[in-house]
Nucleic acid binder design. Structure first.
Lengths: 150, 150
DNA sequence: TATTGTTATACTCTATAACTATA
DNA sequence: TATAGTTATAGAGTATAACAATA
C-alpha cells in the first residue's frame, strides 16, 4: 500500500461520504498497527486475542471468535501459534473446551502490545479532541451492533 | 461473518479504543455494502472506480489506483471486467495510457450503484447527526492523510 | 441436538517481480 | 529514467464443509 497522495490528483466525490472515510482511516490505522506489531512477530488479531484472554481468564476459543466476529475455524492457527510460543495456556475445562489464560511470558508480551497499540491509536487518532472521540466511539459501536442484526 | 452479539459475552477493554471501533464499523459497513453490490454483480472497488471515472472523465487507470491507495496491478482485473461488461470505455490517450470514461450503460449502472451506496451509508451512519458526521469526515480524512506520510 | 475444537480446502484480495511500450 | 499497462504468481486472510468428541 502507501501510495502517496500529496495533492488530490483526481476529484473524488466519495470524500464526503462517512462510510468511505471510515474505511480509509481503518485501512491506514490497520496498516500502521500491523507494521508496529510485526516487530513483535504478532498479527493484529493475535494482539487483540491476548487482550481478550487477559480480560477474561478461563474463557474459551469460540467465545473469543464471537466477541470479535471471527469464525472459530480461523482462530485455530492464531491460538496454536500463541500457545506454541508460550504466550497462552490451554487447560481442559469440560471435555470439549479449554480454559484460556495468559502465561507469565504472555503477560509480559501483552504489556508491550498494549504500549504499541496505544501509541498507534494516539498517532492516528490523538488529534481528535477527547469529547469528540468518545462520541465517535459510542456512535461507531452502534453502527456495528445495528449492522450485525441486519 | 455476521456472528451474533446480543449481549456482551466477554469483557472487551478494546471497546473503548477508537481505533477498534473504527475498524469494526468499517468491517460491518463493508460487509453490508458488498452484499448489496453483489446484487449488481459488482465488487465495492468496482463501484468506487465507476464513481471516480464519472467524476474524472479522461483519467487513466494508474491515477485511480493512486487516489484509492490501490496498486495499479490489482486494478487490472477490475477494469477489464468493467470494460468487458460494457460499463467503461478505454480510448488511447498517449501511446501508453488510456483515457477512461463511462459508457451509457455504465452511467445507468452508476445511478443504481449510487442509490445502493447511499442507502447503505444511510442505514449504517444515518443515525449520526449531520454536524457530527461532518466533523467525523474531516477528522478521519486527516487520519488517513497523516498516516500516508508516516 | 447443539457446541467445541479441529482439519482440509477453496476463495478473495493484496503484494511482488518482471516485462513491454511509451514519454 | 520514469510512467502506463500488463502478466504471472506468491502470500495473507477469510469462508465453507465436514468430522470427532462432548454437553
Amino acid at each position: 500500500m502507501a501510495t502517496r497522495e500529496i495533492t488530490a490528483e483526481l476529484a473524488n466525490p466519495l470524500e464526503e461520504l462517512l462510510g468511505y472515510q471510515v474505511q480509509r482511516a481503518a485501512d491506514a490505522a490497520q496498516e500502521a498497527a500491523a507494521a508496529a506489531l510485526a516487530r513483535l512477530e504478532l498479527r493484529l488479531i493475535s494482539a487483540v486475542v491476548l487482550q481478550l484472554i487477559q480480560a477474561n481468564p478461563g474463557c474459551n476459543q469460540s467465545s473469543i471468535g464471537r466477541a470479535l466476529g471471527v469464525q472459530r475455524t480461523n482462530l485455530v492457527p492464531v491460538m496454536s501459534d500463541l500457545e506454541g510460543r508460550g504466550f497462552i495456556c490451554r487447560r481442559p475445562a469440560d471435555g470439549r473446551s479449554n480454559a484460556l489464560s495468559l502465561t507469565d511470558e504472555g503477560s509480559r508480551l501483552l504489556s508491550e502490545v498494549r504500549a504499541v497499540m496505544q501509541a498507534i491509536d494516539e498517532a492516528c487518532y490523538g488529534d481528535i479532541p477527547p469529547r469528540l472521540r468518545n462520541r465517535m466511539v459510542q456512535h461507531l459501536r452502534a453502527v456495528r451492533l445495528r449492522a450485525v442484526l441486519d
